[in-house]
């Protein structure tokens, strides 16, 4: 059973990227209009700005990918172990609502008395 209803964490990265790029634009415009005297100086500032913006966007996208990968790794399955008290057969199956440790079931192999002995979660690989 997967953990239904577990929400992937929302990431604030896209919003912060926009803010950072916006701030850089404002600073660059300030330099372009007041500090740069020649066309070539302006071009250099624009090129630097473009390079920095691409770098920031790439870094933030990497963060988004990392967060999504982490969320996927957190997905878990719940399994239960049923042990037959007569033939010793062990069966592992997915958890279903209503299962609990100590619940008595019928052994699928010999039809004898079996019991749920363990319920645990595992990461889905």
């Amino acid at each position: 059973m997967g953990e239904k209803g577990v929400e992937r964490p929302a990431t604030p990265y896209l919003l912060s990227t926009l803010v950072m790029v916006g701030l850089m634009m404002v600073i660059a415009l300030f330099f372009i209009t007041l500090a740069a005297k020649t066309e070539s100086e302006r071009n250099i500032i624009w090129a630097m700005l473009g390079f920095a913006a691409v770098l920031i966007v790439m870094m933030q996208m990497l963060e988004v990918v990392k967060a999504r990968r982490a969320a996927l790794e957190e997905r878990k399955s719940i399994s239960i172990v049923i042990e037959c008290q007569e033939c010793g057969e062990k069966l592992v199956r997915d958890f279903q609502r209503g299962d609990y440790v100590g619940k008595e079931e019928k052994c699928k192999k010999c039809g004898g008395k079996a019991m749920v002995t363990l319920i645990y979660s595992e990461k889905i690989r």
Binding site: E3, K4, G5, V6, E7, P9, I78, F95, R97, G98, D99, Y100, V101, I119, Y120, S121
Partner: peptide
Amino acid sequence: ARSYFRALIPLKEGIP
């Protein structure tokens, strides 16, 4: 907070 949120399903379904 995330721990409490993830606890909801096991608590609801009676998972140890």
